[in-house]
Each structure stands twice: as structure tokens, then as C-alpha cells.
Design a protein around this nucleic acid. Structure first.
Lengths: 112, 112
DNA sequence: TTCCTTCATAAGTCATGGCTTATCATAAGG
DNA sequence: CCTTATGATAAGCCATGACTTATGAAGGAA
């Protein structure tokens, strides 16, 4: 699977996003994460495994605990993938906007 | 569900990403998309529905066909969500890097 | 009208994945 | 040693979702 695919699949789950957001506020142990969410400790471990394989978190042993923290570089692939469309679409949009300017219409999208 | 949640869930599926990427290269009909992918036309329609509800595509009738195109603004929520972590982590990283500089060490996380 | 094409929806199948409880390994403390 | 705390894994349950085929609606073309 592609890098961005792994990252997207990992972040698509709400519980995993909650874990990720908590770790973004500060590194913490598995039990600490489990205490802050309404799921069991094994569920947390499973989610952390997915996040780790996606390159979004890293872990480090500390005594009998294991401290997990965010790997900010893990968001890189997703960001790059996003930027592709961003640039493509902005370029295409600009062409439309320029042609619309001649007709007096502003670059506006119709609301649903 | 949150906006970024919808977008992430929509883009997490490989087939939907393929559809999205194809539409990014140019607007096209449902049958046209179906011809370019190894799934049936109903499957494509179902995926397009999800993408549309996530705000990632828009459609417009053209005779008996329906032309789908990308809505570039749909990526906004995901991008904003991403930027939050990006900034947070870069800021935290910078603080560590600065404090470590005084001690001559490289940008590394403190132990314990 | 009668085709023919395009597309959406309904209904059903099947695999995936998120969760649980149970269990085991490891590390610290008595 | 034994106990406690922590976390990873196994096994099973069950809901979700990605697909299929079948069908119907809607818009040209004959």
C-alpha cells in the first residue's frame, strides 16, 4: 500500500484520531491513553500498533512502561499527497477565474 | 462526525482515492470512471456518493449523463486539521532544539 | 411510441476491522 | 522467591462497508 494510504487508513478511525490528538498534546504511556478513552487497554495497544506502522507515532521503553509520542514527520506523505491536488486545482481554478473575469463574474462556487 | 473525519474516511478507501485522482485530472461521467477501474458501475456510484457527502466532488447533469468533478475546497478541513499538528509539533520541536543548542547537543528529546 | 444508454438504488454476500475477555511476558518492589 | 503493574498478543464476536446482480427511472434517438 502507498504511504499516504497507510496514513489515511490509520487516521480514518475516530478512536485512533483521538489517540493521535492526545499524544500531540504530550507523550504518554499506554495505560494513560487507555484511561482517557472509553476503550480497553488491548484496543489501545492495537490502535497504537497501526499508528506506529503508519509512521505516525514512535515508542520508547521506560521502566515497565512504554512511552508513545507523535512522529511529526509521519504526516509528511499525506501532506505531500494533498499538496498535489491543491496545486493542480489551484492552477485549474486560476484559469477559470481569469476567463470569468472577462465576463465580470467573480471566482465563486455555487452553494449547494 | 467532524468534517475532517468525513474527508479522512472518504479518502481512506483505495478505490475512492483512485476515483478522486482520476477526477483531479479532469471531470468525467460515471461510465467513464467505471471504465477506468476494475469495479462495477453501481460500485462507482456508491463511492461517488460518499465522496460527494464528504464535499470532495460535485456533480452536474449533462443530458442523460452526470458529470462529476473535484471540489478543491473539500480538502480544506483536512488540510486545516493537518496544519494544527504541523505547527504544534514544529513549535515544540523548535523549543527543544533551542534549549539543546545551549548545551551543544543536537535537537534531541530529553530522556525520562 | 419503442429502443438504448446512463445512472441510482435495492438487496444480498462476504471480508475486514474494531472491540471484547483471557492470557502471557516483562520489569519493579515486597 | 512472590506479587503487582504494564502492555502485547490470541481468539472470538459482531457491525460495518465494499462489492455484486437485478431493477427502475430519466433522457435522447429512431
Amino acid at each position: 500500500m502507498t504511504y499516504e494510504g497507510k496514513v489515511l487508513a490509520a487516521l480514518a478511525d475516530p478512536t485512533r484520531r483521538a489517540i493521535f490528538e492526545k499524544l500531540a498534546k504530550g507523550r504518554s504511556s499506554v495505560a494513560d491513553v487507555a484511561r482517557s478513552l472509553p476503550v480497553s487497554q488491548p484496543a489501545i495497544s492495537q490502535h497504537l500498533k497501526v499508528l506506529k506502522e503508519a509512521g505516525l507515532v514512535s515508542d520508547e521503553p521506560l521502566g515497565q512502561r512504554r512511552i508513545y509520542s507523535i512522529d511529526p514527520a509521519g504526516l509528511g506523505p499525506l501532506r505531500q499527497w494533498l499538496d498535489r491536488f491543491w496545486e493542480d486545482q489551484l492552477a485549474a481554478f486560476k484559469v477559470l477565474a481569469d476567463s470569468d473575469e472577462a465576463s465580470g463574474a467573480g471566482p465563486r462556487k455555487p452553494e449547494r
